[in-house]
């Protein structure tokens, strides 16, 4: 996982600073820039140094949270520090929604394979996957927020939990469909396993066979997916936060891109990669807990 972090940050850094085109022009988003700002940027990114040195110095600045300043003069670290908790809240809520509902629906569909509930849920999940998040976001914002008035269409200052329900739902919806389908497949595979038949032959109740023998084994691939998906949710936050005006990392990144504020872009992406790496470490640990076979490898 550590090499992944270095590799991914290197990749981002390379894309931003080593591709053809003047990096300073890139940093400014093509807009004219005051000489003082330009000099500050050159110093910040050590652009007079060879690429490798630049990258290493950049890593150093990442570790020390010395991430430079935005165009308006605020330290990037502070800006990220304010936005990050909001997105973390949003992503955790989305993850909870997709995990709870995805697994629940997936288990019921899998156990009733081929029945009406299963077929309905399957088709609906395809629909959810097919409709782009930003369309879903608009529609839900319009219907639930504006027409029905059940929730605030945009998120207020400080992004309280209640306001985040609707955006979290939109953010988690596509992954919900994937979790559902994955759980369903996994359940169907496991419920025909030999050890499940043996468990039934022992005289266990149906309930115990399902919870103890089918469910735990089926959750292993789902947990892996959920972990990897945390990174995806962070990426998806760009769209969702834009629609609902959530003052989180996604909106920050999006605005920074539009403004061509590259220091912020690189820093935010690095943070997101870090989150992805940590999420995967947690998944590895969960995985070992769920599946004793890999503990001794």
């Amino acid at each position: 996982m550590i090499p992944v972090f270095f590799g991914a940050t290197l990749l981002v850094y390379f894309l931003v600073f080593a591709t053809p085109g003047d990096p300073i022009a890139a940093l400014s988003g093509g807009k004219p820039m005051a000489p003082a700002v330009e000099a500050a940027l050159r110093a910040q990114y050590n652009l007079d140094q060879p690429f490798w040195i630049q990258y290493l110095l950049y890593l150093k600045s990442l570790v020390t949270f010395d991430l430079g300043t935005t165009f308006s003069g605020q330290p990037v670290a502070d800006v990220i520090g304010r936005a990050f908790p909001v997105t973390a809240r949003l992503a955790v809520m989305a993850l909870a929604i997709e995990a709870v509902f995805g697994i629940a629906f997936g288990v019921f569909a899998g156990l009733r394979k081929g029945k009406a509930f299963d077929s309905t849920v399957l088709i609906l999940s395809l629909l959810v996957i097919a409709v782009p998040t930003f369309v879903l976001g608009f529609v839900l914002q319009f219907v639930v927020g504006v027409k029905l008035g059940w929730a605030k269409p945009t998120v207020g200052a400080g992004a309280p939990w209640g306001d985040l329900i609707l955006p979290a739902l939109v953010l988690g919806l596509v992954s919900f469909a994937y979790v559902l389908r994955l759980t369903r497949t996994s359940i169907i595979e496991n419920k025909n396993a030999d050890y499940v038949r043996t468990a039934t032959a022992k005289g266990l109740s149906r309930r115990r066979v399902v919870t103890v023998h089918i469910l735990r084994n089926s959750l292993i691939p789902v947990v892996t997916f959920l972990g990897a998906d945390l990174g995806g949710l962070m990426g998806g936050a760009i769209v969702t936060e834009g629609i609902f005006n959530v003052p989180g990392i996604g909106l920050l990144l999006f605005n920074a891109i539009l403004k061509g504020e590259t220091p912020t872009v690189v820093a935010v992406v690095s943070v997101l990669v870090l989150v992805f790496v940590i999420a995967n470490l947690i998944v590895d640990m969960l995985y070992a807990w769920l599946d004793p076979r890999i503990r001794y490898v």
């Binding site: 053809p20 093509g30 990174g231 962070m234 769209v239 990144l253 891109i257 992406v269 990669v273």
Partner: peptide
């Protein structure tokens, strides 16, 4: 390494390159 950057995120970064 590529997996650590979600499709949309990676694409956003590349698409805003000069």
């Amino acid at each position: 390494i590529f997996f650590a950057l979600p499709l949309i995120l990676g694409a956003i970064i590349v698409m805003q390159l000069p």
